[in-house]
Computed example of a mutant assay.
Amino acid sequence: MKEQSPFSSSVTHGWSYDVSLNFRGEDTRFYFAINLYKSLHQKGIHTFRDNEGLRRGEGITPSLVKAIQESTAAITIFSETHALSTFCLDELVQILERIQRKGQLVLPIFYGVEPPEVRHQRGNYKEAFAQHEKRFNNDKKKVQKWKQSLRDAADIAGFHFKPGQEHECDLIERIVKEVSRRINRKPLHIANYPVGLEYME
């Protein structure tokens, strides 16, 4: 895939979610991912995030596939151990297939990793795939599909976060602004003098 704008296709109405998040919980669940989720939610952007901690078994769940398929956009957070998770890789495959079939909008975020590390499976990604190749020795096609999905996703223009060079809150603000602009999501209007709302400090 050639490098393209994070959101390059037209938006179709009638989706169940505006955005689905694909991320490795051990790296970002309690910090970046949850803060991004909350910020999107506060802007009225209906966002799906998978509860990785409640997963059972080996395969990606039908409900997760359905959520990905019914989302206007997908945000994938590539972090240090993202490639260790077969769940994250399976989700990514679904997201990339969705691009080809329905033109889903995809925004990659390189969180503490370099795009070439993802694209060419270097560093931690190389180590992760050494494990996968050994574990899935009888299903090499699955591993190759994961690798190709990483290459394709890394070719899409997105956001690159380097710890120590930018505050996470600033990056999140830029992401939310871009998502809002691309899906044409306008902030919810609040009445100037709302009635029946209790003020809380």
Rank of each mutant, 00 (worst) to 15 (best):
H41E: 14
H46Y: 12
N184C: 13
T61E: 14
K147A: 04
F48C: 04
G53R: 15
K177G: 06
G196F: 11
L40H: 06
K140F: 07
K145Q: 10
L105M: 12
L107G: 12
E97I: 02
I190E: 15
Y31C: 09
K162P: 05
S16N: 09
S149G: 11
E127D: 11
A191E: 07
E201I: 11
V11S: 09
A153E: 03
F161A: 03
K38V: 04
R135V: 04
I156T: 10
G59D: 14
F32S: 01
P115C: 08
P116K: 14
A154D: 03
E91I: 07
R56T: 13
H82D: 01
G14C: 13
F129Q: 03
L92H: 01
F159M: 12
P108F: 10
A128F: 00
I175P: 05
P62T: 08
V11H: 06
N124V: 00
I172F: 12
I95V: 14
R98G: 13
S9W: 14
A67R: 00
V19H: 03
P116I: 09
D152T: 03
A130S: 11
E70H: 00
S180H: 13
F30I: 05
K38L: 05
I68N: 08
Q100T: 14
L40N: 03
H13F: 12
E26C: 12
F23Y: 15
T28N: 07
S10C: 07
S5K: 14
I60Y: 01
P62L: 06
I77D: 02
E114G: 08
L197E: 13
R122F: 00
E201W: 08
K162M: 09
S16V: 03
S149C: 12
E80Q: 13
Q69I: 00
K186S: 15
K177E: 15
V113Q: 05
T76E: 02
Q42V: 05
P62W: 06
P187G: 09
G57A: 10
E58M: 04
N137P: 01
A130Y: 07
V106E: 09
V106M: 13
R135E: 06
G14Q: 08
E117F: 09
I68S: 11
I68L: 15
D90N: 08
Q94I: 01
K162W: 07
P187E: 11
A130V: 13
